[in-house]
Amino acid sequence: MFRIYPKTLTLFAAAAMVLMAAGQYAIWFYAPEEMTMGPVQKIFYFHLPLAWWCFVAFFGVFAASVMVLWTGKEKWDVLAGVLAEAGVLFSGLALITGSIWGRAAWNTWWTWDPRLSTTLVMWFVYSGYLVLRAADAGGAKGARMRAVLGIVAFVDVPLVFLSARLWRSIHPAVLASRSGGLEPEMWTTVWINLLAWGALFAAIVLARYHGAGFARRVEAALVRIQEKTLQ
């Protein structure tokens, strides 16, 4: 059975709205302009929270997958799928904003940066995972198979990151490290936006979870009725 949490959802959605408004205000009016990069640096305030929460989502897929194997409960399977969806959305947006940042800052759309490359590979892995889910592969054993994929995908993350870092260290990169010194106002802006995107993330995941959970209940009920009428 799927429990739903409408009050929590309302809370997160409201928090997302308030925080996002505050975050937008901070980005455009509060945070000072960066000296060398100018206004383009403001992409950072979207990019960082998106990247951060996509990794939280992928870790969530892993944790939910472990719970599927452990408890066998259907709700964890649904949650894993929902988190993977949110993770692919967020990592996709993080990649796009990162690429635009790269074009503006380093004059190239794509460069071999370990973090960037790791995010791209993760995007591929979890997109594939979603395609497999959508194809409903595995039949009755499907939930277990999806759980195994969810675990294997996450186990791969550190290896991908290490290999991406090693790969680059022999090929010296053209770019200098990201500007280290952020002013205190910038940090405040970063934190507000991180929280805002976190609230939005939670609201999206919860809303989708409710929908997906309900859909499964309805399908199960339809099957039951069909079986009854056939008898």
Binding site: V121, F124, V125, S127, G128, Y129, V131, L132, A135, A137, L149, V152, A153, D156, L159, V160, L162, S163
Partner: peptide, 13 residues
């Protein structure tokens, strides 16, 4: 055949 879509990126390292 769909599994290949997830196998290839996992092989990256």
């Amino acid at each position: 055949a769909l599994l290949t879509i997830i196998v290839f990126p996992l092989q990256v390292p």
